[in-house]
Computed example of a mutant assay.
Amino acid sequence: MPAFEIVALYDSDRAITPSDFEGRYVLLNLWATWCAPCIEKIPDLREARRRYPPERLAVLNVSFDRSRSKATALLEKREMPGRHAHAGGGLMGEFGDKFARMPSESASGEVRGLPNLTLVGPEGTVLDMVAGDSADVLETLSEHL
């Protein structure tokens, strides 16, 4: 997994880094309030939390909303398990550039879009990447965990 430091959604003075998740699987969930398929994934995230305890699976939800307040307002209404961060630069910003692109033949890469989920193993290796509204999060988790 690429190194990163991202600002916590609720506490902009706090940074989240990969070392926060050492020894656990990490489900990196890139989402936004304007992404209807992202919101539709929330029940799957809740089920994942029910199946896999935080000691085994960490969930890091990264909002790509321009406004932090829009993301926090949605989270007040809907329970999205895990830790929350904010990628202020959007999909093309520093964090988005590392995680929202999939390898391709072209030098520029392709943006995978949202929803965008990456499963990282306890050793820090990317195990699976799923994107789009047809992505089956629970199936991906059951294959690897």
Score class of each variant (00 low, 15 high):
E47D: 08
A58C: 10
V62E: 08
M92E: 15
L45H: 02
M102W: 12
P43A: 04
G82D: 11
R78M: 12
G90S: 12
D65P: 07
R49Q: 11
E55H: 13
T72E: 13
E47Y: 01
H84R: 08
H84E: 11
A85F: 04
R56Y: 09
G90D: 11
G89T: 01
R51P: 08
G93M: 04
A107D: 15
A73R: 13
S106W: 10
F95C: 06
F95G: 05
L75C: 02
E47F: 00
E94A: 15
F64C: 06
E94P: 12
L74C: 09
R51E: 07
G82S: 11
G96D: 07
P53T: 07
P53I: 10
G89A: 03
E55D: 15
L75S: 03
K77V: 08
F99Y: 15
S69T: 01
Y52G: 01
I42K: 07
P103D: 14
D97T: 13
P81Y: 06
S69C: 04
R83P: 04
H86M: 04
T72R: 11
R50N: 11
A48D: 09
G90K: 00
P81V: 07
E47A: 10
R78L: 14
G82L: 05
A48M: 05
A85M: 13
M102K: 15
G88Q: 13
L91V: 11
K41V: 00
V59H: 07
A100W: 13
S69R: 07
L45K: 08
G96A: 05
K98W: 02
K98V: 06
A71R: 00
A58D: 01
P54H: 05
R101G: 03
D65N: 03
K70I: 00
R101P: 03
L45Q: 04
E76T: 13
R51W: 08
R51L: 14
Y52D: 01
A87I: 08
D97L: 11
S104I: 11
A48P: 02
E94N: 09
E76R: 14
N61A: 15
R83T: 09
P103V: 06
M92N: 14
A107N: 06
K77L: 05
R49E: 06
K98A: 14
R46Y: 05
R56D: 10
M102L: 15
E105N: 13
R56G: 02
M80I: 06
